[in-house]
């Protein structure tokens, strides 16, 4: 197997008498999509922040030397006091051409001249994804990236994320509540509730007693085979391809 992009050994974080992370170990390899699921307050975002170096925890985190990370946070509210267009925002991080190409790739090139603070939640989600991939990252970290995106757009965006993985050959670490859409695209699912309850491919995890205990009927529902009879493009028009 190739050298992992990032490896975490025995991460532990306690706040007072509360254990937020308990002996969590994981590794992410190039080209794989790892999805982190777990109930609210189970430590998903904290684990992500620890891996990104935003939160200090006990344990070891090893990054492949020169690892380039692209990050899409769970919440991002552009400050209206800062005048900044979408294109300038990408330019600032990835350069003019890469920024432009990424906007087109994510299907939000129309918004390039608009002010960031004037965008809707769904538009922001796409701009953030474009910004993250514009820098051609080795590891893409997405913390519930689709808040504010409608259901049809969601499926299209997850499809896009899987395509981007193939194009960039990057590893993707994804946190999501949207179990039913996510799991089909994931190579590996990690179920977190302060510690790792279970992990494996989507089908194995579904049968795991720890998963069923955590998600119960919701878990069953989440993995109910979900067949669309049509798909939506990112712009929202219907694509009839079957």
């Amino acid at each position: 197997m190739t050298e992992p992009l990032i490896t975490a050994h025995h991460l532990t974080l306690a706040a007072g008498c509360l254990t937020i992370l308990n002996d969590v170990s994981l590794a992410i390899h190039p080209g794989e999509i790892v999805t982190l699921i777990g109930p609210n307050g189970s430590g998903k975002t904290t684990l992500l922040k620890a891996l990104l170096g935003l939160v200090r925890v006990k344990g070891d985190i090893t990054r492949r030397p020169g690892l380039k990370v692209g990050y899409v946070p769970q919440q991002f509210t552009p400050d209206p006091s800062l005048p900044m267009t979408v294109h300038r925002f990408l330019d600032l991080f990835a350069g003019h051409q890469a920024g432009w190409a990424a906007l087109k790739r994510v299907g939000i090139a129309d918004a390039h001249d608009r002010q960031l603070s004037a965008l809707s939640g769904g538009e922001i989600a796409r701009v953030l994804l474009a910004r993250a991939v514009a820098g051609k990252p080795d590891l893409l970290v997405l913390d519930e990236p689709l808040a504010g995106v409608d259901v049809a757009g969601e499926a299209a965006l997850y499809h896009l994320i899987a395509e981007l993985r193939d194009e960039l050959n990057c590893g993707i670490l994804l946190v999501s509540h949207d179990l039913h859409v996510v799991m089909g695209k994931s190579d590996r699912v990690i179920c977190l509730n302060h510690h790792i309850c279970c992990e494996g491919d989507a089908h194995d995890v579904r049968r795991d007693p720890a998963f069923i205990e955590l998600f119960g009927a919701r878990g069953e529902l989440a993995l109910y085979p979900h067949h669309h009879d049509h798909a939506h493009s990112l712009a929202g028009e219907t694509l009839h391809d079957h």
């Binding site: 800062l82 600032l92 960031l116 953030l128």
Partner: peptide, 19 residues
Amino acid sequence: WKPLLRSAAGGPIAAAEGR
């Protein structure tokens, strides 16, 4: 100017990406 602007515009993003 540029690194400061990156932090101001990106907030936690810039920090997470080591920028």
